[in-house]
């Protein structure tokens, strides 16, 4: 059996093992991979960056812990950018396993605002983030399509109370906010098909500016909506999150993972090439044998 036949019969577990070893080694050695920012990510950053203080942005956190790896870095980067710029936020969690995780993330980011930090040459003083003043967390309700439609009439229809049980009218920031007309944009960060609902039932029905952050698996399917202008920006997977972190000058878990992404992709490309070489050589030999 020559090397090409061995390649074709290689146990896939050797590939897994090799990939794991490469990933762990790359993770152990700290070096930086340059991240090129794409226009669809820059559009979201620029939109948020040019909003005046006091504006309201809605951020639906529509993902389960299973998509946390790709989408949490987006949430952390955008929410911190908004709060540093004193933009108020409305959160919702229309995926069934997301409310607890979203609540934890909101608390974590609130804590990170308590220290002074410098981003892109601007020093931001420490801030105390107050529930009801700087943000409102609506929580979860089933059937996202219906919820998205009814929020277009009034946030109080599906969510008379926020996640913590406080009536929305009791929250200072919600007193003058009725529906999507009162928010500057919606940035849906989603690991489920709720993005489809936000496009069709939200942006399509009410016409507000919509941007999305989605998992790598579903990124390609949403590019047509970017081309048609139905969404003004798109962040795809960990790469999209790393690009946003770069723009926000706030490196986090996504940028930290890019060197591992790079090495893992190199290994996979190498295996694809080897597999194809093995396949074509074996096919060529089989045909040559047939001719004899």
């Amino acid at each position: 059996m020559d090397i090409f036949e061995k390649l074709m019969r290689l146990d896939r577990r050797w590939v897994f093992l090799f990939l794991i070893v490469v990933c762990v080694l790359t993770y152990a050695f700290d070096f930086e991979i340059p991240v090129l920012v794409e226009p669809e990510v820059e559009a979201i950053f620029d939109f948020v960056d040019t909003l005046p203080a006091g504006s309201v942005v809605m951020i639906p956190i529509d993902y389960d812990p299973g998509s946390l790896a790709e989408l949490h870095p987006m949430t952390y980067a955008i929410v911190e950018q908004c709060w540093r710029k004193e933009i108020k936020l409305i959160f919702s969690a229309l995926s069934q396993n997301s409310p607890g995780m979203a609540d934890q993330a909101i608390r974590d980011i609130s804590d990170s605002l308590k220290v002074e930090k410098e981003y892109n040459g601007v020093v931001y003083p420490p801030r105390e983030i107050v529930n009801g003043v700087d943000y409102c967390f609506l929580g979860y309700k089933p059937y996202p399509a219906i919820i998205i439609l009814s929020m277009g009439q009034n946030f109080r229809l599906p969510f008379p109370l926020d996640y913590y049980g406080t009536p929305l009218d009791s929250l200072p920031m919600m007193r003058n906010i009725q529906n999507y007309d009162d928010v500057a944009c919606v940035i849906d960060i989603s690991g489920t098909n709720s993005t489809d609902y936000w496009i069709s039932y939200g942006q399509g029905r009410y016409g507000f500016p919509l941007a999305i952050g989605v998992t790598g698996v579903s990124t390609a399917q949403y590019y047509p909506f970017y081309g048609s202008g139905q969404i003004f920006g798109i962040m795809g997977g960990m790469l999209g999150a790393a690009q946003y972190e770069q723009l926000a000058d706030n490196p986090g878990l996504a940028k930290d993972g890019m060197r591992v992404q790079w090495s893992a992709h190199m290994v996979i490309i190498l295996f694809i090439i080897l597999g194809n070489v093995g396949y074509f050589v074996s096919r060529y030999r089989a045909r040559r044998e047939e001719r004899r």
């Binding site: 790896a69 790709e70 998992t215 579903s218 960990m238 878990l253």
Partner: peptide, 15 residues
């Protein structure tokens, strides 16, 4: 993109 997503999950677990 799917490869990137799966590797992202592994990276997160390493972190």
């Amino acid at each position: 993109f799917t490869v990137m997503a799966r590797i992202s999950l592994f990276i997160n677990r390493m972190q």
